[in-house]
Simulated assay, not measured.
Amino acid sequence: METNKKRLVACPNCKKLSEFSSGNAFRPFCSERCKMIDLGLWASEQYAIPVEIKPEDLTDESFDH
């Protein structure tokens, strides 16, 4: 007999527990609202992935704007 345990995770935004399964279209978020809040933070550049800028990354093309 196989039991199906629900996997609950904390929503990255509000920390409310929500089911992490294909039945939750917003996973790992608890709702569309929390998902959109997170997207808005990325879009407004409040989240960023740090990358070290190397001198060879800076070309004359990057200053032609």
Rank of each mutant, 00 (worst) to 15 (best):
E61Q: 10
D38S: 09
C14F: 03
S22C: 05
L39G: 01
E56Y: 03
D57F: 00
V9E: 05
E61M: 01
A43R: 11
S31L: 10
E52I: 12
K6H: 02
K16D: 07
K54W: 03
F63S: 10
L41G: 01
F63N: 15
R7M: 13
E45S: 09
N13I: 11
F26R: 08
C34G: 09
L39E: 02
F63H: 12
P28W: 05
S21P: 05
D38H: 08
C30S: 15
N24R: 08
G23H: 13
W42H: 06
T3I: 05
G23M: 11
Q46D: 15
P28T: 06
K54T: 08
K54E: 05
H65A: 15
L17E: 14
R7C: 11
E2N: 13
L58W: 01
E52V: 06
A25W: 13
R7W: 08
K35W: 03
E32W: 01
L17Q: 09
S18W: 01
K35T: 06
L41D: 10
K15F: 03
S21C: 13
F20V: 02
D64H: 10
A48W: 05
K6Y: 11
F29G: 12
T3Q: 14
E32Y: 05
M1W: 04
S21R: 07
L8P: 13
D57L: 00
E61C: 00
S21A: 15
I53Y: 04
I53D: 04
D57M: 06
E56K: 07
M36C: 00
L41K: 13
S22R: 12
S31I: 12
S62W: 02
L17Y: 00
L17G: 06
T59P: 02
K6F: 07
M1A: 15
N13P: 05
S21Q: 08
P12H: 14
C11R: 10
K16Y: 11
C14L: 12
F20R: 07
T59S: 13
L17K: 11
R27K: 14
E56P: 00
R33D: 09
I53W: 03
K15Y: 03
T59H: 04
L41C: 15
K35N: 07
I37Q: 10
K15R: 15
L8Y: 07
E2I: 05
Q46Y: 07
L39A: 04
I37K: 09
F26Y: 09
E52M: 02
F29H: 15
G40V: 01
K35R: 15
C34H: 08
K5R: 13
M1V: 09
R27V: 13
C11P: 02
T3G: 11
M36R: 09
I37A: 09
T59V: 10
E52D: 04
A43V: 09
S44F: 02
V51H: 04
T59I: 09
F26M: 10
P28V: 12
T3K: 14
V9W: 01
T3D: 10
C11K: 11
I49F: 01
F20I: 03
M1F: 05
F20W: 12
K5E: 08
C30T: 11
N13Y: 07
C11G: 10
M1K: 13
E19V: 00
E19F: 00
M36A: 01
C34M: 04
A43C: 06
S31Y: 06
L41H: 05
S21V: 01
E19G: 01
A48V: 06
R7G: 07
K35E: 12
K15H: 10
S21T: 14
